[in-house]
Design a protein around this nucleic acid. Structure first.
Lengths: 139, 139
DNA sequence: GCAATATTCTATTAAAAAAGTAGGGTATTG
DNA sequence: CAATACCCTACTTTTTTAATAGAATATTGC
């Protein structure tokens, strides 16, 4: 049931942006260095985050990324979706996925896995970057 | 966040046993055939379930597997654990796993992923084979 | 203008994990 | 005692994930 490293990197990077003062950008390379992520890999992640509208970028020298929304308005669920990771525990519950299973409509297990997915979604959908940062300050 | 097919096969097979009248065994090969699983693959799964004490077996002709406990006493969490799948969304939360992360103790994200794991565990730990079967009868 | 910086994009390769296969062994029944 | 069915280990293939590579585009500041 593990998340891909791409997802965890994405959340780490978003937290880094969340830590920045408003109006300031931070370069991808700096984030990569600080978290021990290869810059080239983080690039791909930021492109996805950008496409999803979660970050904005400023090009050229002194450029970088920044958040365009308040940190309590960015849900972890959105970050996950942006990088293409699904919360579905089984393939037949991934949205836009052919089920390949003839008895999908009449499958009690599928009903159960759906409940599991709903539980996970509810968790991810009710937590924002702000909630994680608050945790940081506590410790 | 997908489960391995081994886990889903394991739950399917356990449900098959749960459907059997008490005192009756069902052979691995029959379960495999009914669900379109390769018998050789299912064998490995049953060995794990057996080791975990979730099923018992009767050898020889007419033999097979059966549940040794009431179906409301077998949690889905136990089945998952039996086949070696962890509910942890990140590696550093898998029990018995070296974290490889120096700042594991002071990681606000880790705290968050832990909450996520707890949410999933609570779901898996509060549902039994009986709960899934009840769903079946409804539809 | 132009050089330096930094993001954007696509394609390919490498590594890791999962899924499946194979083959022999052991126990039990009828 | 032969047929059935579980038991165990090792290996191979496939799939997925992670990483790398190389080039293109945009912007700043001198």
């Amino acid at each position: 049931m593990r998340l891909t490293t791409m997802t965890t990197y994405a959340v780490q990077a978003m937290l880094e942006l969340a830590d920045q003062p408003i109006g300031k950008v931070i370069s991808l390379r700096k984030i990569a260095a600080r978290h021990g992520i290869k810059a080239k890999y983080l690039e791909q992640i930021f492109i996805k985050l950008n496409h999803a509208g979660l970050v904005k970028s400023k090009k050229g020298p002194g450029g970088g990324y920044y958040l365009d929304r308040p940190i309590n308005a960015i849900k972890i669920a959105e970050i996950m979706e942006a990088v293409g990771e699904s919360s579905a525990p089984v393939r037949c519950l991934i949205t836009g996925m052919q089920s390949h299973c003839s008895r999908a409509d009449d499958c009690s297990l599928r009903v159960y896995w759906k409940k599991m997915k709903d539980t996970i979604d509810q968790f991810l959908d009710s937590s924002t970057l702000y909630d994680i940062m608050r945790e940081k300050k506590k410790t």
